[in-house]
């Protein structure tokens, strides 16, 4: 850690495997990252890149079987979440780590009022009585910008719009003042104007409450707006990681570089033709012994199919240190990379 502050969450060498009838799927391969207080870590990747599975593995949300965590450690403070028992883990979830899912409709229970669902973790984890919990629930709804909060406690999820439901989900996740908030594609199901509202809200809440946030998305635009650091995942592993400005300006991994080029810009130069990444994502049916991106990589070399590259630090990162990449190839000099 460059500035010496101890991380809230430190994940090292996490490995998750799914056992299916068709064989094993190695969904997460030696993923390591850390998170400091008040920081937003953006996690980008395509579907199947392992970004959601990684986060679900952290707090034991994956059903086992078929999922099996094969290795690594997840340090939350001084506790390894992979070593504690189910009861202790249950205490961690909700109290220390909050989770916001993509679809606010399916993650709220339709037969309970919103108030009951916000009060549940408060009574469960913080031992508040009914009145205290209710007062806190009103406070939370106000915090996430739901007007007329006291009255809305008695409403059911279907009486809220999509954006409002996502605000409720955030309120529930925040209920016990978690150290870490994991947001898995929280704005993907929302319209852009509502998405803008939620992004503003999260930025504001982070400032107010100082928690660390992991923001999973496939939308690089959202990452550019909210994240401090970015972790790019491909084929179940981290291929590149760095401070957001550095990574967008000087991407090192061929996948990151290609990904940034496939997205048309809304204000910049309009390309006559979109860049594409040819081919399909890899099938993760074995422990990787080669670079997962090699089949689609324009710079693939002989070594790429022999050896899975380890993450190595990028030296001379002009826009902030802490940039690392898992690739055998080195891009040309920086001034060229900036224009590529």
């Amino acid at each position: 850690m460059p500035d010496g502050a101890a991380p809230v969450l430190d994940v090292r060498g996490l490995k998750t495997v799914f056992r299916t009838r068709g064989g094993e799927i190695h969904a997460v391969n030696s993923v390591s990252f850390h998170l400091k207080r008040g920081e937003v870590l953006g996690v980008v990747g395509e579907s199947g890149s392992g970004k959601s599975v990684t986060m679900m593995s952290l707090i034991g949300l994956l059903p086992s079987p078929p999922a099996e965590i094969r290795g690594g450690e997840v340090m939350l403070g001084d506790r390894d979440l992979l070593k504690i028992d189910a009861e202790e883990l249950r205490q961690v979830r909700g109290a220390k780590v909050g989770f916001v899912f993509q679809d606010p409709m399916t993650s709220l229970n339709p037969v309970f009022t919103v108030g009951m669902q916000i009060m549940e973790p408060l009574r469960e984890h913080m031992g508040l009585d009914k009145q205290q919990a209710e007062a806190r629930a009103v406070e939370l709804l106000q915090l996430v910008g739901i007007p007329d909060a006291a009255k809305r406690l008695k409403s059911y999820p279907h009486q809220f719009s999509g954006g409002m439901r996502q605000r409720v989900m955030i309120a529930i996740a925040l209920a016990c003042n978690p150290d870490v908030l994991i947001a898995d594609e929280p704005t993907t199901a929302l319209d852009v104007t509502i998405q803008a509202q939620i992004l503003e809200l999260v930025k504001e809440l982070r400032q107010k409450l100082g928690m660390a946030i992991i923001w999973i998305t496939h939308d690089l635009g959202v990452i550019a707006t909210v994240a401090d650091r970015v972790m790019v995942m491909y084929g179940g592993q981290v291929v590149e990681h760095g401070p957001v400005k550095e990574l967008f300006a000087f991407p090192r991994h061929p996948y990151t570089r290609a990904l940034l080029k496939t997205i048309p810009s809304i204000t910049g130069h309009r390309e006559a033709r979109l860049q594409v990444i040819e081919g399909q994502p890899p099938i993760l049916n074995a422990t990787p012994t080669a670079c997962p991106f090699r089949a689609r990589c324009p710079h693939a070399m002989e070594i790429c199919s022999r050896e899975n590259p380890a993450r190595r630090a990028v030296d001379a990162a002009p826009l902030g240190h802490g940039h690392d990449v898992a690739c055998h190839w080195s891009p040309p000099a920086l001034h060229e990379a900036a224009h590529a």
Binding site: V192, T193, A224, K245, A249, S265, I266, T267, G268
Partner: peptide
């Protein structure tokens, strides 16, 4: 407002003034 709400995938570029609309459709 709609155009201003789109997130440009480039944190280094000065973005246009963001207009946050209140409420829902």
């Amino acid at each position: 407002a709609l155009l201003s709400a789109v997130n440009e995938p480039d944190p280094n570029r000065a973005r246009r003034e963001r207009i946050i609309l209140k409420g829902d459709v």
